[in-house]
């Protein structure tokens, strides 16, 4: 592979959006070509820096209320008569939006497996926390406050770590129910994104691993088992950052 063709694929390789064959070819080239290695590392740093430094604009608090108030409470069929469209809204615009709807509606549709059902449960728990504004039962960034809080509430002791210095501050913890049992949920934040980490003892039955992650409804999920515990990680933070977070969580086992 020539340098030029390798460099064209750096962006896709960094974003893990590259086919296996291309990935292997580029990586092989990188092992042998110092000049490309330098450029690749530089692009990697730049990408991380951009994602960390660019501002993510949070919706103003009143916007949700405004939208709720504007949503019609009348049946959808009478919508066009009761609601006058905005001045700048024209028919072609409606058609254009409708196209987007039709295109994405055809996207992945499949029968749910046991793992997918569990994944749905995990996402539902996370989202429920977000929309009911009930993310934590105990709000603290101190692992020595959060960990004892679970004592007596659970029949196991979840490992709790604050990862503020690594960019993932602990927000708190709460109780949840997954697979018909009580589980510990730790909540972390990364930039403006919230991350839920579900922890419970691994049962005898094997849970299918989704090592590369599931993406559903805009949420990314990772699961794994370690030291007799099952872990589920869910967030709308981008998948690469979620994977980095998983590496942080699994690299050192706390409270040993």
């Amino acid at each position: 592979m020539k340098c030029d063709s390798a460099r064209e694929l750096f962006t896709a390789l960094l974003d893990q959006e590259i086919g296996l064959h291309d990935a292997m070819t580029v990586e092989a080239h990188l092992r042998d070509c110092l000049a490309c290695q330098v450029i690749y590392q530089e692009q990697k740093m730049q990408r991380t820096a951009l994602q960390q430094q660019l501002t993510y604009f949070q919706a103003p608090a009143e916007l949700a209320q405004r939208i709720k108030a504007a949503l019609p409470s009348t049946p959808a069929t009478s919508l066009s008569v009761t609601r006058r469209p905005r001045r700048w809204l024209n028919l072609s615009a409606i058609a254009a939006s409708f196209m987007a709807v039709v295109i994405s509606a055809g996207f992945y549709f499949m029968q749910p497996s046991a793992t997918e059902r569990l994944a749905d449960e995990v996402i539902a728990s996370h989202v429920r926390g977000l929309i009911t504004n009930h993310l934590t039962d105990v709000a603290s960034s101190d692992q020595h406050t959060v960990k004892p809080w679970f004592n007596g509430k659970l029949d196991f002791s979840p490992p709790v770590r604050d990862l503020t210095t690594e960019g993932f501050p602990l927000i708190g913890g709460r109780m949840d129910y997954l697979e018909h049992r009580a589980v510990a949920t730790l909540v972390y934040r990364h930039r403006q994104h919230l991350i839920s980490l579900f922890i419970y003892p691994a049962q005898t039955k094997v849970i299918p691993r989704v090592s590369s992650g599931i993406t559903q409804n805009g949420y990314h999920l990772l699961n794994w088992s370690q030291d007799g515990m099952n872990y589920w990680l869910v967030s709308d933070v981008n998948l690469v950052q979620l994977q980095n977070f998983k590496v942080l969580l699994t690299s050192t086992t706390p409270n040993k």
Partner: peptide, 25 residues
């Protein structure tokens, strides 16, 4: 706000998948 109203109007035609990508579209 306008986008949410449109999304609500076409909500029936959303059959699953990534609803965030759908909304952002």
């Amino acid at each position: 706000q306008e986008a949410f109203l449109r999304a609500f109007r076409y909500f029936e035609s959303f059959r699953g998948g990534n609803e965030r990508a759908w909304l952002l579209g």
